[in-house]
Design a protein around this nucleic acid. Structure first.
Length: 399
DNA sequence: AGGTATTCACATGAAACTATTCTCTGAGTTAGG
DNA sequence: TAACTCAGAGAATAGTTTCATGTGAATACCTGT
């Protein structure tokens, strides 16, 4: 008890490295968006008609993760909103991230979420989808206004439930008498629109903008400008920013990752009661970011998924490479042992594909000729993480 | 030897099913007038 | 008679199962030399 007490005392006394940690959070929108002036201007040009209560062209934004797409759009939204409020223009901006589970990842929920933006509630289930659309329409058409609907990670949405919903959204305008709705889609996937219904494709991408990745130097500048606000002076060792940028540049210039890394490095340094962030903290941070990602990804998965992963982990010390059949066998044994019902191999195949997507395993489909075709699977986790995951899974599965 | 056909062990797709959570509706019940 | 209750029908969704079809190359099987 005393120990903990002391800890809190010290914690209070110790001054933080951070001035404002929020600056390094992913939702932070800075005063100035570096290296995106041209693109920002383009977006602004396209959306500007909204200020005259005319419908802007639908816009599609492509770019890999961490290239500033979301940031730029939020920046534009913020500044347009200010103007609109000052001049009493009736524009409404709605930003939705389609990846968020249980928020906007199905047609029903997307519309339900939109209704919520207008200050009404609809039940989470029970109503027919048409009904929800009708509520939405009547809500939209109450007054004359332009609505700019930003759908972030729109590729996730269509991957899951198809493009019908986009077709419906593009058709809304013809149903409305007063309002106009303008769609802004943001996608990480550069070839996303290729497997879209041509009708949807043409109406959705009236305008297209592609966000190129940042290079290492640009990421450095971005990090410096953020660090200036986030940390106290002289709290970063020389070279840390550079290395951090290098890490991120290695992966197609993902600025968000770089900023994340810096924040976590800061947290680690602070926890160690250090005055400066060093390269060592950065290394630790990289490991931590990586393992946190995996741990949180597995923690939210269904039981059977976890069990498959557990089977994999149990097999892992023996060898470094497995095939689907071996894993299925191990999994089946585990199920019997713990009296759980056994899923079909079909399902396990999908689960393995998901594990691959999450980067937990590295699977390659190979043909062993006469001996069939299968996934060749490598576990891409290091020893300490395997041990930790095992513990977590055991707890989760109550084994 | 060289060419062709088989065959294995899964992968991949589509559709249908199951269980759960939730709403809406309308019949039956209750309590008060 | 109005208010209330409560069962049943119908939706949405996640996680599966069922059925059907696809697939790459090591091997088996020919063929002609």
């Amino acid at each position: 008890m005393i120990k903990i007490g002391n800890f809190f005392e010290n914690f209070l006394k110790q001054d933080s490295l951070f001035l404002d940690k929020g600056v390094l959070s992913s939702s932070y929108v800075p005063e100035e968006v570096l290296y995106r002036e041209d693109l920002l201007q383009e977006v602004a040009n396209i959306l500007a008609p909204a200020l005259k209560v005319e419908k802007p062209s639908n816009l599609f934004i492509y770019g890999k993760t961490g290239t500033g797409k979301t940031l730029s759009v939020r920046y534009i939204i913020r500044s347009m909103n200010e103007i609109a409020q000052k001049n009493k223009i009736s524009i409404k901006f709605i930003y939705l991230n389609c990846k968020l589970k249980r928020v906007a990842d199905t047609e029903y929920r997307l519309i339900a979420q939109l209704i919520k933006e207008f200050g009404q509630e609809v039940p989470p289930t029970g109503l027919p989808t048409d009904e929800v659309y009708n509520i939405f329409y009547s809500l939209l058409d109450k007054e004359k206004q332009v609505i700019i609907l930003v759908l972030d990670e729109i590729d996730q949405l269509t991957k899951k439930i198809g493009d019908e919903i986009l077709y419906n959204l593009t058709r809304i305008n013809s149903e409305l008498k007063q309002s106009q709705i303008c769609l802004v889609g943001i996608s990480n996937n550069l070839i996303f629109s290729e497997n879209l219904d041509p009708r949807v494709k043409s109406s959705l991408s009236e305008e297209e903008i592609i966000f190129p990745p940042y290079n290492a130097l640009q990421i450095q500048d971005i990090l410096r400008s953020r660090a200036l606000r986030a940390f106290k002076e002289n709290s970063i060792q020389a070279g840390v920013i550079e290395k951090c940028a290098a890490f991120a540049a290695r992966e197609h210039g993902d600025a968000r990752r770089a900023i994340d890394l810096l924040r976590v490095a800061g947290e680690i340094a602070e926890r160690g009661a250090q005055q400066t962030i060093t390269l060592i903290h950065l290394d630790d941070a990289e490991r931590k970011v990586e393992s946190d990602k995996i741990i949180s990804a597995t923690a939210n998965q269904p039981k059977q998924f976890q069990l498959v992963l557990y089977a994999l982990l149990l097999l892992s010390p023996a060898k470094s490479q497995f095939f689907t059949g071996e894993i299925y066998e191990m999994y089946t044994n585990l199920c019997k042992q713990y009296k759980l019902n056994v899923l079909t191999q079909r399902r396990i195949s999908d689960i393995l594909a998901e594990l691959d997507m999450l980067g937990i395993i590295n699977a390659k489909i190979i043909s062993k000729g006469r001996y069939g075709r299968t996934r060749e699977i490598h576990l891409s986790l290091d020893e300490p993480l395997i041990v930790k995951l095992k513990e977590i899974l055991e707890k989760a599965l109550q084994i």
